[in-house]
């Protein structure tokens, strides 16, 4: 376990053109994902935390080739995903799965649960109907929809939000994926239900730990902490910090990480009212017209001259990677 890299992401970029090129004027680009690299070992888990515009969801979609990359490479278990043709990619799909924020939107409202999950086996395997049914029953049990017989013939709208998310999880793990990406898996759910789904995701992860790489995307670093060991902190398409979640929460290095963590409301009035706050200024700038140099410099309390000139590269600081001039000579 944890010996060789299962997922390798190298310098991935995704630029979206904005505006039309009229009369030969050069196109403008939104750099939604700008040069992101990381690896995840077998059994490894990585969080991607960021606010709106951070590019976290775009990054996930590019890795899965749900969006075509602008440049970069992604290897899953040694296979170069960006070089695959559509047919090869389709064959690999069951091995790379995504769980979305809104379970209602990702389930066909006109199909019963049996059909929704069974479809995966029909498309990608040659097993017969009887066995498919057995497999679906197994999966429903695995995700805590018990007794499974009660759910097979239901439609998505007959289930609660939490149950629908369980169906999505069942479908995602149906063919033992090597890569599982959960994008804000609990944000759309009621608070009291979130805990159940977090627990389920952890269970699934433990069960598949010998064969899986796991990515959780969220704006909520507390959720990432309960699901992943390491995390990226993204700001406007760039990675600003990478390291162990626990360590980043205890001692965030990048000023943006500091601000993000001190902004999270803590459900404990003792802590909430006595902790140190990082002074917060301004808002997340637009990606269409980002600031020069370090994207965070207009909001940064420690801004220096060179922050306005050139983007700092990611450097090793202690146990982490940080992109900030405060930590370089």
């Amino acid at each position: 376990m944890g010996t060789h890299p299962l997922l390798k992401v190298e310098n991935v970029k995704k630029y979206f053109p904005v505006g039309r090129a009229v009369f030969g004027r050069s196109k403008q680009y939104v750099k939604a994902v700008d040069d992101v690299s990381f690896t995840i070992d077998v059994g490894g888990s990585l969080g991607i935390v960021g606010e709106s515009g951070s590019g976290k969801t775009t990054l996930a979609k590019v890795i899965l080739r749900l969006l075509e990359p602008t440049s970069g490479k992604v290897y899953l278990d040694g296979v170069d995903l960006f070089s695959l043709n559509n047919k090869e990619l389709r064959k690999l799909r069951p091995k790379m799965q995504m769980i979305f924020q809104d379970p209602m939107a990702s389930l066909n409202p006109r199909r019963k649960i049996m059909h929704i999950i069974g479809q995966v086996f029909k498309t990608h395997t040659s097993i017969g109907d009887v066995e498919i049914r057995e497999r679906v029953v197994d999966l429903l049990e695995k995700v805590g929809l018990t007794p499974p017989e009660l759910f097979l013939d239901r439609y998505p709208h007959e289930l609660s939000g939490g149950q629908r998310q369980r169906v999505c999880i069942a479908r995602a793990i149906a063919l033992n994926p090597k890569l599982l990406i959960a994008d804000e898996p609990v944000s759309a759910l009621d608070v009291s239900v979130r805990g159940q789904i977090v627990k389920l995701l952890l269970e699934i992860y433990e069960k598949h730990i010998d064969e899986i790489a796991y990515i959780v995307i969220s704006h909520d670093i507390a959720l990432i902490k309960s699901l992943c060991k390491d995390t990226l902190v993204m700001y406007l398409g760039r990675v600003v910090e990478k390291g162990e979640v626990r360590r980043i929460i205890e001692e965030p290095l990048h000023p943006y990480s500091q601000m993000l963590i001190s902004s999270i409301p803590v459900p404990d009035p003792e802590i909430a009212r006595n902790r140190k706050r990082i002074p917060i200024g301004g808002e997340i700038p637009s990606l269409i017209n980002p600031p020069k140099g370090c994207y965070f410099h207009p909001r940064c309390p420690y801004v220096m001259d060179r922050c306005r000139e050139k983007t700092p590269s990611l450097i090793n600081v202690d146990d982490r990677l940080v992109s900030c001039y405060l930590y370089s000579e």
């Binding site: 608070v191 009291s192 239900v193 805990g195 977090v198 507390a222 959720l223 902490k225 309960s226 929460i249």
Partner: peptide, 16 residues
Amino acid sequence: KAVPTVHKSSSEVGGI
């Protein structure tokens, strides 16, 4: 208990 927080370890996350 249902909300993961930065000050809790994951094993403490419960739910209803």
